[in-house]
Computed example of a mutant assay.
Amino acid sequence: MPSTTAPAALLTLYDREIRRDARPDGPDDVVERVGRVVRRTAPAHGWNGVVWSDFASGEEADQAIADQIAHYTSRGLAFEWKLYAHDEPADLGSRLLAHGFTPEPDETLMGAETDALALTATVPDGIRVVPVTDEAGVDQVAAVHERAFGDDASRLRRRLLDTLTTTPDTVAAVLALAGDVPVSAARMELTPGTSFAGLWGGGTVPEWRGRGIYRALVTHRARIAAARGYRVLHVDAGPRSRPILQRLGFTPLTVTTPYVYEPSL
């Protein structure tokens, strides 16, 4: 079922509520608007970076880029400049490269209104979905993440545990179990005071892929979001998840590229 709101309108709402008016993720996060930049500063295991910018000229962009590098490196922090395809100036990506940022793979920002989604996916036979509420569950999420994505999940583990401890109403994490063995995990970040809930980290271990578990976890989280009054879901989709999400009713809104800056040792 298609969204009832045009993609351009959803993107405008996303830019305003999630980017320009960004809120702290937790008690140790600081969100600041500095000139034409909105940035988040967190502990080293948190997410640090620029979530929104809007420059009138290339010169203004270059100065702001240099200022953000100085801000984060003075604290010994790596950070991300999350660039969206419609951000200005049009050559902002090239300017970030010139300042020493490294681009990561593009992702498609997708959105859907919860009441327009096809929430008919069922949990596959032999699988049960359980909420993550404690440290043991977080450890299982981290283990699934490492097997599914092949990268270190220690920072994810600390962030998720911090959130569950301090602001549990802003996250919903779930595990898919085959018997007692975790085979898939995902989380949803709920942004109070906005229309949006974000889907993150959906991953299934290789031997359990292709059985509909990812789709079932998307549906499970969408139902939670709707029950809590969140009108719109957003997700940064890779090439494997994008067609699944489109079949569920998600619409591509734009392309986003993470540009990462690592401080010199």
Results as ranks from 00 to 15, higher is better:
T73Q: 08
G76F: 04
D87Y: 14
E80N: 14
L77R: 10
L96V: 01
R95A: 09
E107P: 00
G76Y: 07
R75I: 03
T108V: 15
L96I: 02
R95Q: 12
L92S: 15
T102A: 13
Y72E: 02
D87R: 08
L109Q: 07
L97V: 00
F101N: 02
L96R: 03
T108Y: 06
T108F: 10
L77H: 09
E80L: 13
L83Y: 12
S74W: 00
L109F: 12
E107T: 14
L92W: 08
A78G: 14
H86W: 09
L96Y: 03
L97F: 05
W81C: 07
T108D: 05
H99Q: 08
S74K: 05
P89C: 12
Y84D: 02
D87E: 09
R75D: 08
T102Q: 11
L77C: 07
L97D: 04
W81L: 10
E107F: 10
T73S: 13
R95F: 02
W81N: 07
P103C: 03
A90V: 04
A70S: 14
E88G: 04
A85F: 01
L92E: 02
L83S: 13
E107A: 14
T102H: 08
S94A: 12
A90K: 10
E80C: 15
E80Y: 11
D91T: 11
A90P: 00
Y72A: 05
A90L: 01
E88T: 15
G100W: 01
H99G: 01
S74Y: 00
T108N: 05
L92H: 13
A85R: 13
R75W: 06
T102G: 03
D106E: 09
L83C: 11
K82T: 02
E88L: 14
H99C: 03
G76W: 06
W81R: 11
K82P: 02
T102E: 13
P89M: 12
L96K: 04
H86F: 10
P103V: 01
A85I: 00
A70W: 04
I69E: 02
G93L: 02
L92A: 15
A78Q: 12
L77Q: 08
I69W: 05
S94R: 10
H71W: 12
T108E: 08
P103G: 06
F79H: 15
G100P: 03
R75T: 04
P105M: 07
E88P: 02
A70R: 15
L109A: 12
E107M: 11
P103Q: 04
H99S: 13
L97A: 12
L77N: 07
A70N: 10
E80Q: 15
